[in-house]
């Protein structure tokens, strides 16, 4: 193993642990309950999920109908399964299976 790679891995890994754990251990969420920071943190979750969905779907959006069709059918499957079952796990799996099946059917 290269020492450069090990040094980078240890520095970045330590920073990642600090970013994920220290704000919880330091009770950053209690610093301004009811204040602007509280509202900011309450909104961060919804904003993050919306952001991550948009960021993950953007590369799949294309004018090419043959490549767009699996995305549309997969998305429709997630919406339909969520509407029927209210289950995140099942909706996700249904979307992925439908997407894969569409790719298979379109050859």
């Amino acid at each position: 193993m290269s020492w450069d790679l090990l040094a980078v891995a240890l520095m970045v890994g330590a920073a990642n642990w600090a970013f994920r754990a220290l704000p919880i251990l330091m009770r950053m969420d209690r610093m301004a309950v009811g204040g602007w920071l509280g509202r900011f943190l309450s909104s961060t979750g919804s904003a993050a999920i919306a952001t991550l969905f948009v960021a993950s779907i953007l590369p799949a959006l294309t004018p090419d109908l043959a490549r767009l069709a699996p995305v549309l059918t997969g998305t429709a499957a997630v919406l339909a399964t969520w509407a029927a079952l209210r289950s995140v796990v099942l909706a996700t799996l249904a979307g992925a299976v439908t997407h894969g099946l569409t790719v298979w059917l379109l050859g």
């Binding site: 999920i49 919306a50 991550l52 969905f53 993950s56 779907i57 799949a60 699996p70 995305v71 997969g74 998305t75 997630v78 919406l79 969520w82 209210r86 995140v88 909706a91 996700t92 799996l93 249904a94 979307g95 992925a96 299976v97 997407h99 894969g100 099946l101 790719v103």
Partner: peptide, 17 residues
């Protein structure tokens, strides 16, 4: 392709929830 669509599908389901 199906495995590649797993994360966008998860984020959409979470967004709906």
């Amino acid at each position: 392709a199906g495995l590649g669509f797993m994360l966008p599908a998860l984020f959409l389901a979470l967004l709906l929830s």
